[in-house]
Amino acid sequence: MRIDAKDFDRVESGRIAVLRDLAFSLEPGSFTCLIGPSGCGKTTTLRIMLGLDRDFRGEVRPPSHDARIAAVFQEPRLLPWRTVEQNVRLALPKNATPDLDTLFETLGLSSMRSSYPEELSLGLARRVALARAFAIDPDVLLLDEPFVSLDEATAKRMRALLLRLWRGRGVTVLMVTHNVREAVALADRLLLIDGRPAHLTGDVPLPLPQEMRTPEHMATLLDDLGKTYPDTLQS
């Protein structure tokens, strides 16, 4: 994936440069977090990767031309007039026969399959969005701050679910977040972007098994990161 330049038309006049020379590739089966301050162009990067924004110079190369790409957006983006199960089934490719029973079970959605999204809390709706993404058995999963504005307990449970699903299926994950703590807890690689126009400011491998991510270890890690990238990670 390589973005040479991405500009936005400004409302008043002229164009504003958003991204410059942003290039990276994702190892198959890896879990990468894209971190940067709010409004720096993380979501734009994701939209370009999803093919939702074609007004840029550069190239996005999927792992194969029929690779399945799933996305979890900032909002759940469920169809309110379809039930939970219909929402998941509509996203399935033709002839796919995923084990939805197990998936709903894992995500704690078994009793809500015939509920409508408006009957669900935000946390539950987010879980449905996650179920939809995993149901298509994607090669690449892109997530855009999927746990923002959830209470910490729910967010924690959902992170654990994401890790469980990721490990079980060998999918390549790229998650956008501005929460460094979250990124350090989940990812095996961090990509930091910052600046205007935004570019890569850091590429940090975190080859650390989950069981070693103890609170003390992570505190040291966060401290080190904060010292190395003071501008990108002020928070």
């Binding site: 999803l50 093919g51 939702l52 790409i69 799933a70 996305a71 957006f73 909002e75 983006r77 169809l79 509509l90 996203a91 939809r132 298509i136």
Partner: peptide, 9 residues
């Protein structure tokens, strides 16, 4: 937003 979701999937 729903149109984008439909396109991605």
């Amino acid at each position: 937003k729903l149109a984008e979701m439909a396109r991605v999937y």
